[in-house]
């Protein structure tokens, strides 16, 4: 598999996903200014789908694109997390000025933030499986389950499962109990 330059193999897929996130977040936010009706509904549906996909499912595209353009494992992981990192950073800006540094640090364990990391890890793992199977079908000696991609898959599954168990209530109340213990 040919290793393309860093722009193609790493920057391009990350920027595409980030661009989709930025553009369609704004389209979604502006959709409220449209007259209610068919056009508004279509704009809301399309922009919301692409916005959420870029935030939560980006690695399915980014990792796959990077993989087939010769990006290394760390490069694929880094590229996959550009859009999620941007979203998490943007989310943090809403909290800055309201909560202490310690509380902001603890926020990384919030089911939504940690969940975003977990789901994106899971997507990396799924993408890796897809890419590796494809490579193997072409006769390339690539292990289906190497340590890094297996770790991403298992960690992603565990975090996602924990976050969604009991409709998300169990993890959330554990999170809040620990918060209360630490900060109040």
């Amino acid at each position: 598999m040919k290793k393309r330059n860093i722009f193609i193999r790493m920057v391009l897929p990350a920027v595409i996903t980030l661009g989709v996130m930025v553009v369609f977040s704004n389209v979604y936010n502006l959709s409220g200014t449209l007259r209610p009706g068919g056009l508004q509904t279509v704009v809301v549906l399309v922009s919301a789908f692409l916005m959420f996909a870029s935030i939560w499912l980006g690695p399915l595209f980014v990792n796959t694109f990077a993989f087939f353009n010769g990006a290394s494992g760390p490069e694929r992981l880094a590229a996959s997390f550009v859009a999620p990192a941007a979203w998490i950073a943007k989310t943090y800006t809403y909290f800055i000025g309201i909560y202490s540094f310690g509380e902001l640090a603890f926020l990384i364990l919030h089911p939504l933030i940690l969940g975003n990391i977990g789901v994106n890890l899971l997507c990396v793992g799924i993408s890796e499986l897809f890419c590796r199977r494809k490579m193997r079908s072409r006769g390339e000696p690539v292990p289906l389950f190497a340590a890094p991609n297996t770790l991403a898959l298992v960690a992603g599954l565990l975090i996602t499962f924990a976050g969604l168990w009991n409709g998300g209530h169990t993890y959330y109340y554990y999170f809040m109990d620990v918060y209360t213990w630490l900060f109040t």
């Binding site: 979604y28 936010n29 959709s31 409220g32 209610p36 508004q40 509904t41 809301v44 919301a48 959420f52 989310t91 809403y94 919030h110 939504l112 998300g168 959330y172």
Partner: peptide, 17 residues
């Protein structure tokens, strides 16, 4: 009219569960 199906997912409303 300014409401839509995804309001509960956006503008950080997911933080209220």
């Amino acid at each position: 009219p300014e409401s839509n199906t995804f309001n509960t997912y956006t503008r950080n409303h997911m933080f209220v569960g």
